[in-house]
Design a protein around this nucleic acid. Structure first.
Lengths: 255, 255
DNA sequence: AACAGTTGCACGAATTTGCTTGTTTAAATT
DNA sequence: AATTTAAACAAGCAAATTCGTGCAACTGTT
């Protein structure tokens, strides 16, 4: 009977070592681990991928980083980053100098705000402090923040004061962040938010709804407005995509 | 055991460094980063472009700037973090359940907002969207955001509408972010901001001025209010520190 | 012997980086 | 205000590295 060399390591054991290294140095290189643990880089890479899958570490090109590593909004915040960018570009194509635009909150609207071209001269009204801040980065844009009680959940101004303030506005476009969208129209889950959105729609000549396609055909508890009030439905998909079929006769699309 | 010298830096790691530098100094030059991180300027430029694309920094010719508001400000990239924390704790000791507090913007005020204890029930009025967002993280706090035209430079609501809105408020405390402070009182450099600050002071029973000591004995172009209107001057220093000598007879301090 | 699990290797694909080229920008000078 | 000049830039390329996958070899277990 030959006693196996004690140098060989079980997979679990090796992965425990890797985790230890990551936590110790906040980063590891695949090549270093390969040398240190006497296995091929392929094995290390497989380990790192498994550990990343288990959400224990963050895999990056060349190695891995500890989860506590200050990896900004790069990944978490920018869910569906590419899709939202496409939507943003389509939406921006509707903007023209001199317009007055009323907009709500949400990550899709935020993508629009951050990608505005430098030269556009627009007045924005918004109930979202976050969007307002984003918009102030653009020197040629005037930002009017609509104040009021701030909703802890949705981070937008709500309440009677906001609604009556919105009623005083006459905007060209309403860019509305969407939570529920189907053939019946737009729906949402928060009563106060619905009141604000209704006022916003009423105050604007045209209603634009940027929606990521995965939110299409979803219904929430409260109805905001029916589909025929929507002027443009903007998604990341081409206008002739089959998911959009049921909407094609009711709303406008942007190439 | 092999100790590997980590000459090699992972891309994400390098980008995290860059973000840290940008947020700490508010601006960086590509050439400096290139030297500091031992990569070519091309690589730095590519990193900066990626980070700008992800909306983490603002790319400019020659380097990059921090976004003037920074939603993900952390310990590492807040200037004078420790000092501001001391100031925050002292200021918070003045808060009591049921109070109405009016506050402006700035990183020191932000430190206060982020460190509020969980159990405190307070109504906050603020002209700063950033402070407002920070405050909504505290479930027992009611946040009223004062709307108006948003100043691109100072990121607070300005204009007649804000001022008249403030005049309707009766607050217990005014927590005022300070830019210039000396024996003559508080000064600032932006006319619109001064108008708002004056209104805030007038609407409050007590005026609290959290100031980092390095801003003491500085004067800006416009006078906001004289020193004898200030109830508490809060710095990171002990009340008997010699820098505070000239203020000791005029204002209150917090241990 | 059959089997699932693990590992190393091969190889084409993808990523990253520094360099070169020609262009654009910002600032300094006239 | 016009011109000049050096720096910063984008785009493309090549070398090096890393990646993912299929496959075969090896392990220990049933």
């Amino acid at each position: 009977m030959i006693i196996t060399e004690n140098r060989i390591m079980l997979k679990k054991e090796r992965q425990a070592q890797i985790i230890k290294q990551v936590n110790l140095h906040n980063k590891v290189l695949s090549s270093d681990l390969s040398l240190e643990l006497n296995v091929s880089e392929d094995t290390i890479r497989r380990d790192l991928n498994e550990l990343a899958q288990e959400n224990v570490i963050v895999k990056v090109h060349g190695g891995a980083l500890s989860k506590s590593y200050n990896l900004t909004a790069t990944q978490a915040d920018t869910y569906a980053y590419d899709e939202k960018n496409i939507i943003a570009q389509k939406t921006i194509s509707l903007f023209q100098d001199g317009m007055t635009v009323l907009c709500s909150g949400g990550t899709t609207i935020r993508a629009i705000a951050s990608q505005l071209p430098e030269n556009l001269h627009i007045t924005f009204f918004t109930v979202s402090p976050l969007i307002a801040l984003e918009l102030t980065e653009h020197p040629n844009v005037e930002v009017i923040l609509l104040g009021g009680k701030l909703s802890n959940a949705s981070k937008i101004s709500i309440g009677g004061e906001v609604v009556s303030k919105i009623n005083e506005i006459k905007a060209d476009l309403c860019i509305l962040g969407i939570n529920g969208f189907n053939e019946d129209g737009i729906s949402d889950s928060d009563y106060e938010v619905v009141q604000v959105k209704k006022a916003m729609i009423k105050a604007s000549k045209q209603l634009i709804t940027p929606v990521i396609s995965e939110k299409l055909n979803t219904t929430l508890r409260l109805q905001v407005i029916s589909l025929d009030e929507v002027d443009y439905l903007i998604t990341e998909l081409a206008p002739d995509h089959k998911i959009l079929e049921s909407y094609q006769s009711k709303v406008g699309f942007i190439m």
